[in-house]
Amino acid sequence: MKFALNTPNFGAYSDPRLLAELAREAEAAGWDGFFIWDHIHPGRNLVEPTADPWIALAAMVMTTSKITLGSLVTPLPRRRPWKLAREIVTLDHLSQGRVILGLGIGSDRRQEYSGFQESADSKRHGEMLDEGLEVLLGLWSGEQFSYTGKHYQVNKEVFLPRPVQQPRIPIWLAGTWPHKKPFQRAARWDGINPICWDKALTAEDYREIRAYIQQYRTSDAPFDVIASTLETGTDPEKDRTTARAYIDAGVTWMQERIEWHTSVPQALTRIRQGPIRI
C-alpha cells in the first residue's frame, strides 16, 4: 500500500509556489505521492484563482526528488492529445520518471464543457478518450505514427524524446462506479481511480471493483486501485484498520483528499504528520 495526498488546483491551492512547498513537505514526511486536480475553474458560480496543473506540477517536481506526482483527473476530451503528449513527456523527463497520468472523460458538473460552448455529451467524450489514449501511446513510441479516427487524425508524426518510463508513462483511468464501461476501459491500462457521487466507497466496493476489472485484464502487469479518503490522522488505530481493509480488498494506493476549503495551516499540519503507519 502506498499513501498519497490530493489537492485542488484552485482557491488557496492555486499558488504553484505553495504546492511546491507542500510537495517538499510531503516528501520529507514520508508520503509516496502527491496528486492535484485538473479543472479550468471551480464552477461557473464559484469564482476562485485557478492554476494550470502542468505548470504547478513542474514547480512541485523541482522541489522534490522521490515522491510520485501527477494529475487526478485530467479530462482528455478537454485537451488536444498531442499537446498533452508533449506536456507529460516533458514532465516525465523533468522528474526523471516520477509521473503518473490520471485520465477520464470529466463531467459538466462545473460547466467546464458547456461554459465554453463545447459538447457535454458523455458518449462523445468516451469516444474521444478512447481515441486520445491511442494517440498518446502512438506519439510516445518515438516512431513515425499516423492515426485516423472519428475525432482525431495524425499524419506521419514523430515525437521525441520518448518517455523516461517504459513501456509507457503509467495511465490511471477514472470511472464513476457502478457504471461499468469506464472500468472495462481501465482494465486495458495501469490503474483505476473509482469515483462515486452517492456515497463513500467501502473496502467491499473496492473488492468488487477489482474483481470486475480482473475479468477484462489481458496482461499480468501490475494494476493499481486507488482509494480516496477524507482526512485521517486523528485516530491512528481507526486509520490502520481502514488501511488494512483496503489492502485486503486489493487497493494499492490510498489518497487523502485535502478539500479546497481546508486552510493551508490545517493541510500543512496534516502533511507533516505523515501517512498512516501500519
Rank of each mutant, 00 (worst) to 15 (best):
F3H: 10
A4S: 14
N6S: 07
G11M: 03
A12T: 06
S14H: 10
E21Q: 11
R24F: 03
G30R: 07
W31T: 07
I36E: 02
I36W: 02
D38E: 11
I40H: 12
D52G: 13
W54N: 11
A59V: 05
M62V: 06
L69Y: 07
L72S: 02
L76R: 09
K83F: 04
R86G: 14
I88Q: 00
T90A: 11
H93K: 07
Q96H: 08
G97C: 07
G97S: 06
L101T: 00
G102Q: 01
I105E: 01
I105T: 15
G106F: 08
D108G: 12
Q111A: 15
S114E: 05
S114D: 05
S114C: 04
Q117A: 07
H125D: 11
E127A: 12
L129R: 07
G132D: 04
L137Y: 09
L139S: 04
S141V: 08
Q144R: 15
F145I: 11
S146K: 11
S146I: 15
Q153M: 12
V154D: 10
V154N: 11
N155A: 11
V158M: 13
F159C: 10
R162P: 09
R162I: 14
P163N: 04
V164G: 10
Q166W: 02
Q166N: 11
I169V: 14
I171W: 01
W172R: 02
L173D: 02
A174F: 10
W177A: 00
K180I: 04
K181F: 05
F183W: 02
R185P: 03
A187Y: 06
P194A: 14
D198L: 12
K199G: 03
A200K: 07
Y206A: 02
Q214A: 15
Y216Q: 09
R217D: 09
R217P: 02
D224L: 02
V225H: 10
I226Y: 10
A227W: 00
T229G: 06
L230V: 04
L230Y: 10
R240H: 07
A243Y: 14
G250E: 12
M254N: 11
E256W: 06
R257W: 13
T262D: 14
V264E: 11
P265W: 05
T269F: 04
T269G: 06
R270D: 12
R272Q: 15
Q273G: 11
